[in-house]
């Protein structure tokens, strides 16, 4: 499991593998780490949508797949 300070955590984010050297234990911490605080995004963890209100208590663990999406121009 992720969480022990100093332990690198590998996550698959938007199809790309990323390694975090600092602890990333929850979706809220991940969002912060990615500098997406306050941005209008939606997050899916291992295929399940994580409501914004649950970021702080939704754990992320090594090997998790996350999709982070936003609204862009489109027809």
């Amino acid at each position: 499991m992720a969480g022990a300070p100093g332990t690198a955590v590998q996550l698959n984010i938007n199809g790309t593998s990323r390694t975090f050297d600092q602890p990333v234990r929850t979706v809220a911490e991940l969002v912060h780490e990615l500098a997406l605080d306050g941005k209008r995004i939606a997050v899916e963890r291992n295929g399940m949508i994580v409501p914004r209100s649950r970021y702080a208590d939704t754990p992320v663990a090594a090997g998790d797949s996350l999709e982070i999406v936003g609204a862009v121009g489109g027809g």
Partner: peptide, 20 residues
């Protein structure tokens, strides 16, 4: 107005303007 849903560009300047 229609909008598309796409993967967020991780690592881009957080202050960059957005559609919103």
């Amino acid at each position: 107005v229609t909008v598309a849903i796409r993967r967020t560009n991780i690592g881009q300047d957080p202050s960059a303007p957005s559609l919103l």
